[in-house]
Structures are given as C-alpha cells and as structure tokens.
C-alpha cells in the first residue's frame, strides 16, 4: 500500500513525505503560535520533520499522522524554545473569568448575544488570531489543537503531554477568555451595544 509504513524496518523517505508533508503548513502555524517568531518557527518545523523521518518506523499505521507530528513538534518546542518564551499576558486568566461571569449575569445578555449571532461575516480579519495570541501558551495550544486542528481530546492531551482533565480544563477556560475578547472587539467595532468589559 503506497501510503503505509514499510513493515520490513526500512524507512522510506518517499513514504514519509507522502504522509507528513501535507501537514507542514499546520505545523508551521502551530510553531509560530508557540514562538511568535518566524525564524524560530521555521527551525522547529525543520527539526520536527528530521526527527519524525528518523523515527518513522515507530509511527503506528492507523493512528492520526497529524497528531503524531504535533507531538514531536511540541516536544521540540518544550525542550529547546519554551524557556525563551515570554507570554505578553497582561490580564490573568482569573481576571478574565471574573469578567466572563459578569457578562453572563448581565441582564442585557440575550439582546447582546442575538447581536453577536448577526456578526457571522464580521470575523474575516486577524481578530481571532489576535485574541488567541493573548492567551497563555498552554491554553492557546489547547484551542488550536481541538477547535482549529480538530484533534480529539485524547490526541490533543497526548500532543501536549498532559492529563485529559488538564486539557479539558484549559480548553474550557480558554474559550471563556476568547469569548470575552471577541465580545469586546464586537463592541469596539459597534457590532453590538454596551460598554467594553
């Protein structure tokens, strides 16, 4: 089978390329979201591919190749680059969540939410990426892997090397923060009424 992993122990670069190269864009995007520096992102992706090719014989046929590559990429990032990262986090997750709870309790919620639903075509620019950029790295990674890359909880937890419950909690809280950020943006743009949180 042309897409499979050779079972004679001899790793084929061509087969590896067929399986792995189509995910290069997604991996670069993930690396850039982690490092915020294009040069570092490119280096991480290159190292990921070199490591993955060397260990291609370990790839289990029938499993998600994208998740396998993300796992290697995240390992490269954690081991070599994470210590240099400085998240530009200004507001703590806890503060964001307080804002979120205030918004949910707002008597004008229903009216505002209907307004938000009418903004479906308004989110074509970089505002989603910018909102994600305000999240701490581990929260951002959870959203990117599950909501953007469509990995399962189990796959995403495997990539990040964390327990399933941790992944679930990060995703839960990250979505709350993103909601507050996007709602603020919608207010600033005049898509919905009210004052900024």
């Amino acid at each position: 089978m042309s897409f499979g992993v050779p079972n004679d122990g001899q790793t084929s670069t061509a087969q590896f390329e067929a399986v792995a190269v189509p995910f290069m864009g997604a991996l670069y995007n993930k690396a850039l979201s982690l490092t915020r520096r294009p040069e570092d992102a490119a280096d991480i992706v290159q190292e990921t591919y070199m490591r993955a090719c060397r260990t291609f014989a370990n790839f289990v046929e029938g499993t998600n190749a994208k998740a396998w590559l993300f796992t290697i990429l995240y390992s490269v990032f954690v081991n070599k680059y994470r210590k240099d990262q400085r998240d530009p986090q200004i507001v703590s997750i806890e503060e964001w969540e307080e804002t979120y709870h205030r918004e949910l309790a707002d008597p004008g919620w229903d009216e505002d939410f209907v307004g938000l639903l009418g903004t479906a075509d308004a989110w074509q620019g970089p505002e989603i990426s910018e909102a994600l950029g305000k999240l701490p790295e581990e929260f951002r990674a959870a959203v990117l892997l599950v909501d953007v890359e469509q990995l399962t909880y189990e796959e995403a937890a495997g990539v990040l090397g964390c327990p399933l419950g941790t992944l679930r909690s990060r995703l839960f809280r990250a979505r709350r923060v993103l909601f507050v950020e996007l709602r603020n943006y919608a207010r600033k743009q005049g898509f919905i009424g009210g004052t900024q949180a």
Partner: peptide, 14 residues
C-alpha cells in the same frame, strides 16, 4: 459561539 468562530475564521499563518 466561540468554538464556531474560532474554527471558521481563524486565519493560519502561511
């Protein structure tokens, strides 16, 4: 709503 907006409108880096 947040999940839907993120999945639909997140613009990946090229």
């Amino acid at each position: 709503w947040t999940k839907q907006q993120t999945a639909r409108h997140y613009v990946p880096a090229g």
